[in-house]
Simulated scan of single mutants.
Amino acid sequence: MGGMKLDLEAMLADLRALVEIESPSTDLAAVGRVMDVVEGWARELGARARALPGGTRQFSFGVEEGGAERPVLVLMHADTVWPHSTLEKMPFRVEGDRVYGPGTYDMKAGIVGTFYALRALRNQAAQGGWPRGGVQVLLTPDEEIGSLSSREAIEAAARGARAVLVVEPPVADSHALKVGRKGVGDFRLTFHGVASHAGNKPEEGASAITEAARAVLAVQALAHPELGTTVSVGLIQGGSAVNVVPAECVLDVDVRVSTLAEGERVTAAIHALKPQDGRVRLEVEGGLNRPPFERGPQTERLFAQAQAIARDLGFEVGGEVVGGGSDGNFTAPIAPTLDGLGAPGDGAHAAHEHVRLDRWPDHVRLLTRLLQEV
């Protein structure tokens, strides 16, 4: 399989088909159109396709219900961060060894590459066809907005898998796979104060903005960068007019943690915040949306296997722990998980988003071998 042939022009045509169906997370019908195309590819390969609660689709290749061997689980998502009409300013285009467009790198090329890997496996009839236990693919609709509808299906599938391969892209502008991810938390702090005229009766007011300002400093002081814990107040909304003591203010807070213990510490501290002014009431919502994907021995074994396969294929892969979350955060505490097995490139969520055509085939060959050998 090291000399496996790939039709790059056909891969590009399939990628273009997905990219030119714009699929922002908030438009379930548009996301569903991407899923319909992918389901067509899966059925052509003889997959059993199921629609799961929450909009996730499951494709099973050579998986025996109740069989002795558990399948390898592949995770992918059909949604992107890009709104409709992004193609007008970021069209799908090929420039040299790079292919640009919204959702190319994150992660429609990962979907396309997976199906070329699956086609290669199906064609290995002389070697027994599908690998032992088979391959199960989950295509989810809402990864970019926290996987609220798909998390249950992801975790259930992981409990039945012997390993999980996530086809999110590798680390930007490299061959490096992702062997750990920080946990991600989202919090909203809403301060309810007392409005009054800022000139005539300021003493009757209780400023929600003043309490929010104190909270910004208190919350961000919870960060421990040396432990991988970061805290950022990214949005502030408050006040009604410049001459009114503000009765409302809202803070939106992003938290990233490398360990569950740190996540619990920060979560408890944020929920324990109290305004200094007793007339101001504070509501705290939120918590850890994704647990940390902690780098552990099971992932290390998968990563070592990927390194050995890559060397056999003639290239080197590194391994990094990254700050962004993925659906691999949900599976890592349940089953051995390796992330970053999609298409190399750069520019996730940015105007220069692209895939490296000179590197992409190598990573499809790597994924194919992993599916065969894990």
Rank of each mutant, 00 (worst) to 15 (best):
E155Q: 09
L8P: 09
G32Q: 06
A156R: 13
D312P: 05
M1A: 14
R369E: 13
A158C: 14
L371M: 05
V167W: 01
G199R: 12
R162S: 05
L341T: 06
L217Y: 09
V266L: 03
P336L: 01
N289K: 12
Q124I: 01
V81F: 04
Q305L: 12
P297H: 01
A306P: 01
E211M: 10
A208H: 09
E353K: 10
L282E: 07
T80Y: 01
I209R: 07
L370S: 01
R98E: 14
A272E: 14
G342Y: 03
I334Q: 01
E69H: 12
G32L: 08
H224C: 10
L302Y: 00
Q237W: 08
Q305K: 11
W41A: 14
P24Q: 00
V179E: 04
G32D: 08
L288F: 01
F59H: 15
A198I: 13
E204G: 15
R188A: 14
M90Q: 14
V280M: 01
F330W: 05
G263F: 00
Q307F: 03
H354F: 08
H192F: 03
G55W: 03
G328P: 06
F59V: 12
R162T: 05
L138V: 10
F315S: 10
V233Y: 04
E44I: 09
P170A: 13
L165D: 00
R159N: 07
V171A: 15
V194S: 07
P246Q: 08
L338Y: 02
L121P: 01
F315Y: 11
F315H: 08
A109D: 07
D346I: 11
L148D: 13
E22G: 02
L260P: 09
P344Q: 06
I309Q: 00
A343I: 08
T230V: 05
P275G: 08
L15S: 10
E226S: 11
V317D: 08
G103T: 04
V364W: 01
M76I: 12
R369M: 02
L177Q: 07
T331V: 07
A176G: 14
V166E: 03
D186W: 13
F61C: 11
Q58E: 15
G287H: 07
D358Q: 08
M1H: 06
V19L: 13
T267M: 06
K201R: 12
G345K: 05
A156G: 09
G205Q: 04
P53V: 10
G263P: 04
S196E: 06
F187C: 07
E283G: 02
S196C: 12
A308D: 15
L371A: 00
A310N: 04
A212K: 10
L139D: 12
L367Q: 02
E39Q: 15
Q58M: 15
Q58P: 06
V171Q: 12
Q298F: 03
A241P: 07
G340F: 01
S85W: 11
A51F: 04
E300C: 10
V364N: 00
